[in-house]
Each structure stands twice: as structure tokens, then as C-alpha cells.
């Protein structure tokens, strides 16, 4: 048996000092950079001594490494998070810094005066469900939750610096069913072409910055229609 294989085989027979596996919640926080260093060290110590958790961690690392390529809401791969780079790499990261600056500008333009933060620089022309950073989109007033009657429209709070708003409606399966034109008010009637059938829906509002740049989305809100249209 080759020497490394022999050592690995022997290593696999060492009993883990902490036999308790990670909980689902710990896996989520580990994969989302949500652990403080002492806790992370503790769980990594367990993972390195536990073949089952080592295999799972390998999968989680792979997921994390590849998810960001299609989902901006996923954590960035570790190598993009600011490891010290040789000076010549400055030229390579300048476009990234420029993009980050554009996001900050969009944030400053569309940022509401108060309220919870947390959206990203989205693709404003398509329905995208993304998140990132500390930028806040419009705060939605309604509809939200379980509705006793039929919704007559959508309402939200104004965002300072926004030129207009676009409303997006999705069905319970997440399929986009309607998108408004850009409107300047903060209320819009239910679209005539969409039947108010019982079921779950999701909606959100994109705030269009007055000075250009990508629209900033609100959080995605769900509501349930329980009554049937007459």
C-alpha cells in the first residue's frame, strides 16, 4: 500500500474526540460565513476527524464554490474575498472595484431614508430574485399574508431618489405572470389581464433610480387569495 494511503487509512481509524456531528443549522452558518472564528475552529476540528462530516463538507465547499456563478445571493468563493494578492493583480481587480463602485452609487441614489436594508445590484430588465449587500428597496404595504377578500392592487412606500417603480407578480410556483410598465405613483391597480384566482402569489417592486443605474428590488412578499372572484 503506498505510504500516503497507509497513513490515510490509519488516520481514518482514529476515533473523533468530539463524536457529535454538526447540526443542519451549523452547516448553514458554516457555509454562509456565519460562524465566529472559535466556533468555526471547533467544527473544523470535528470535520477533520469525522469521515462522514468530511464528505459532507467537501460537498458544501463545492456547492459554495459554484453557486455564486449563477446566484449573486450566494457567498462569494473564498478566493474572491480578499486574500492578499501580488501587486500586479491590481490591474485585474480594477474592473471589479469599478463594478462595486457602481453598486454603491446605485445604493446612494435609491436608498430610502430609513428601513431595513438588503438588496443587490439587479438586472433591472428581467425578473430576478437576488440579494446582496446593504441596499434597501421599496417597503411593501400590501397585499401580504392571507387575504380575506380579493386584492384590488399593490401599494408600497416611496423611495427617495426613485424616478419610478415597476411591479412584478409571480404565481405560487415562482413563475412570473405579470410585470407593470414603469409608474411614478406608489399604488397600482390589480392588472385586468390577470385573474384573481385562489392560491399563493409573490410580488415585489423595483425602484428605478432617477439618475440611471439598475433598479433596486424590494423584498419578495407572499400573499394568499382565498376567495373566488364573483
Amino acid at each position: 500500500m503506498p505510504e500516503l494511503d497507509r497513513l490515510r487509512s490509519a488516520y481514518a481509524r482514529i476515533e473523533p474526540e468530539d463524536p457529535a456531528h454538526l447540526s443542519d443549522e451549523q452547516w448553514e452558518r458554516l457555509a454562509s460565513d456565519g460562524m465566529d472564528p472559535p466556533e468555526k475552529q471547533t467544527v473544523l476540528d470535528h470535520i477533520l476527524g469525522c469521515p462522514e462530516c468530511s464528505q459532507i463538507y467537501r460537498g458544501v465547499l463545492t456547492l459554495r464554490r459554484e453557486a455564486h456563478s449563477f446566484d449573486p445571493g450566494a457567498p462569494r468563493p473564498v478566493e474572491e474575498l480578499g486574500r492578499p494578492a501580488p501587486p500586479r493583480r491590481w490591474r485585474m481587480i480594477l474592473p471589479g472595484l469599478a463594478a462595486a463602485a457602481a453598486v454603491i452609487v446605485a445604493f446612494l441614489v435609491v436608498r430610502p431614508q430609513s428601513g431595513p436594508g438588503g438588496v443587490t445590484a439587479p438586472d433591472g430588465n428581467r425578473i430576478t430574485l437576488r440579494t446582496a449587500g446593504s441596499v434597501a428597496g421599496p417597503e411593501l404595504s400590501g397585499p401580504v399574508g392571507r387575504l380575506d377578500g380579493l386584492p384590488d392592487g399593490f401599494a408600497w412606500k416611496p423611495v427617495e431618489g426613485a424616478r419610478g417603480y415597476i411591479v412584478e407578480l409571480l404565481d405560487g410556483d415562482g413563475n412570473p405572470v405579470w410585470r407593470s410598465t414603469e409608474v411614478t405613483g406608489v399604488r397600482i391597480p390589480w392588472p385586468q389581464e390577470v385573474e384573481r384566482s385562489p392560491g399563493r402569489y409573490y410580488w415585489r417592486v423595483l425602484a428605478v433610480p432617477g439618475s440611471g443605474g439598475p433598479p433596486v428590488p424590494s423584498e419578495l412578499v407572499a400573499f394568499d387569495i382565498t376567495a373566488s372572484p364573483r
Partner: peptide, 24 residues
């Protein structure tokens, strides 16, 4: 979920949970 504050990061965390479950 009634309100998904950060949809895609929520899906990412859910995907992590599913990865763990599937590998187990």
C-alpha cells in the same frame, strides 16, 4: 415562507441544507 427577505440567499441556505441531507 410569508416573506422572503433575501430570496436567493435564502435559497442558497436551503440548498446547503439539502446538500447535507442528500449526502447523508
Amino acid at each position: 415562507e410569508q416573506v422572503i427577505h433575501h430570496p436567493s440567499s435564502y435559497i442558497y441556505r436551503t440548498a446547503v441544507r439539502e446538500t447535507v441531507r442528500m449526502l447523508r
